[in-house]
Design a protein around this nucleic acid. Sequence first.
DNA 1: CTGTTATTTCAGAAATTACTGAAATAATAG
DNA 2: CTATTATTTCAGTAATTTCTGAAATAACAG
Lengths: 195, 195
Amino acid sequence: MHRSPLHQEFILHFGEMGSRWGINRTVGQIYALLFISEEPLNAEQIVDSLGVSRSNVSMGLKELQVWNLVRLRHRPGDRRDYFATPDDMWEIVRTLIKERKKREIDPTLSKLRELGMQDSTNEVDRYAQSQIGELRELIELLTSWHDDLNRLETRQIVQLLQAGSKLRALIKTTGNIVKLPKGRNAGGRFQETDS
Amino acid sequence: MHRSPLHQEFILHFGEMGSRWGINRTVGQIYALLFISEEPLNAEQIVDSLGVSRSNVSMGLKELQVWNLVRLRHRPGDRRDYFATPDDMWEIVRTLIKERKKREIDPTLSKLRELGMQDSTNEVDRYAQSQIGELRELIELLTSWHDDLNRLETRQIVQLLQAGSKLRALIKTTGNIVKLPKGRNAGGRFQETDS
DNA sequence: CTGTTATTTCAGAAATTACTGAAATAATAG
DNA sequence: CTATTATTTCAGTAATTTCTGAAATAACAG
């Protein structure tokens, strides 16, 4: 299938960025292709457009479905699967954040809670335990904020972002609730250097 | 160097998560080790603790410095380099977000702007251009919001997060400014399916 | 059923990324 | 300067990830 230079450049860019986003090149390219295609595409059309193997496309589409980043569509009288990206771009952003949290944050939060259970009468572990506890609290705060955001509609989120300039105002309405970090190197045997 | 079971489990977990976070196992382990160590460590101590090669540690520390995730320290009369993680955990979070934005968002924003310049009198590119433009606007909005956040102090950010329940209130103070997405599949030749 | 088309699975090949040991470079003390 | 210690570089190897082609499975239509 022939693609315009604009399409090609867009698709190749998403392919190259794929590795930085934790997906592989083909998955990035498939997503880009669906994103700029007005009509849903079937696997064979994707193969033709990208020049990769049918099996690779099959696996890529499966991964995109696991990520909840594509929607399945069908034409009457056509039993092939067609794929499209969601229409609401902010839904895509929310999905991306949610899925990344699931993969990158949640397992660590579980592990931190698990490690926090261990009662370390052990003196060596005292500092480690306090660091682990602080990190867990930090992630829990971010997580609950994320949950709050996820209860909002697309329209509300956009409004919130556009109210960026009002951030400072909001802060003045809340008290100073939290203790600030204590700082390490109490004995002072080390010297700070450049950055 | 002997490490307690707590230390070991924490370090191994960060190593395993490394690949999901876009760093390799060794870099993840080095960071974890520094994070739970009360005193700064030198390269040799890291080698002993992790059981990897000296050169691997050297490369890992270099990468952590590129990411701005470690600080260099020195002891008087000792010319070896010592390393520590920043004391303020929220500074770490901010750094992580900033650096990931630099790697994962900024190049794509540049590319989208570049592609948006192309005047596509071409009919095929009309839809692609509108998608690219919408995506660019979305990223620009997120980016400027991120810039706003970065101007805040740690204390203010924590307060903002803890004010999560006040989000809805804030939204009521802002008008409905933005047009909502239009939706694809105008002709309606495709049928929606499951998820 | 049987034949045809669509999709998935999977073992091995290809490509990429991570790691090591050895050698080079850098920094400093004497 | 020379010897010693600290750090980096890098070519080759190991480990991991991605991709392909072939075979298996699934989903129909007739």
